[in-house]
Computed example of a mutant assay.
Amino acid sequence: MARVFSSFALLTLAFSVAMASDHSPLQDLCVADMNSQVFVNGFTCKNPSSVQANDFYFSGLHMMANTSNALGFGVKPVSVTQLSGLNTLGISMARIDYAPWGINPPHTHPRASEILTVLEGSLEVGFVTSNPENRHISKVLNKGDVFVFPVNLVHYQRNVGNSNAVAIVGLSSQNSGVNPIANVVFGSKPDISTDILVKAFQTSDDVISSIRSKF
């Protein structure tokens, strides 16, 4: 009986790990057909006979993303939307640029873990573990350093230098999704009721209204 239970526990663990990222492909390739009207979990496949090299090609990561915004950061994503050959492969990437002291604010990726490599500059990075610990794990990275953010945990980056910084990130999903915490809470449509946010943040109506007006 103990052996059966151990086998079941091992199978359960293996299944949970397998479900931690996008499903594995069942064929060599499935280039996304962006014009299809069929709705599936991802994108339907183009006819393999019409697949070309350009379906697996993207150009532009050598160009800086726009950082002229209040946060001082910009992202050039390479997900299935930009590179249709990523469909079903369970990976994507992005370039992130940071103006001096710019931040990529606290956010989550609901469908992906993230691995970040600093190409230029210095970044303070961190993530927070789930309740009840809410442990803040952070580090300052320099050129060539690598850091991992576990799937769906709140994380952030901040340029801690007086010059621009650049990072490349890899993500364990073709479409990782992003939930900036402030935007989700204060910029939802329709609004989350003010009285709910007042109680959640232990503050006043005026403070919530002031914050919400910025989103």
Rank of each mutant, 00 (worst) to 15 (best):
V140I: 15
P100I: 02
L123E: 05
S50A: 13
K143C: 01
I96Y: 01
L123K: 06
N87R: 09
R135S: 14
Y57D: 03
E124P: 05
K143M: 07
P105T: 06
L61N: 06
L116T: 13
F58T: 00
N134W: 15
S92Q: 00
G102A: 00
V140S: 12
S50F: 05
H136Q: 10
I96N: 00
S163E: 15
A167W: 02
V151C: 11
F127H: 12
H109I: 10
G102M: 02
N41G: 08
T67K: 04
L71F: 15
N69F: 01
G126Q: 07
T81M: 14
R111A: 08
N131F: 13
G60D: 01
G85I: 05
R111S: 04
Q37D: 10
A65D: 07
G161R: 01
F127Y: 15
S50I: 08
N54E: 09
T117I: 14
K76C: 11
E114K: 06
L89M: 11
E133F: 14
H155M: 06
G161F: 00
N142C: 09
L71G: 03
I168Y: 14
N87P: 07
S163V: 13
V51E: 03
P132A: 00
I103G: 05
M63Y: 12
Q37I: 03
Y98A: 02
S92T: 00
F147L: 01
K139L: 11
Q52R: 14
Q52D: 04
C45M: 04
V118N: 08
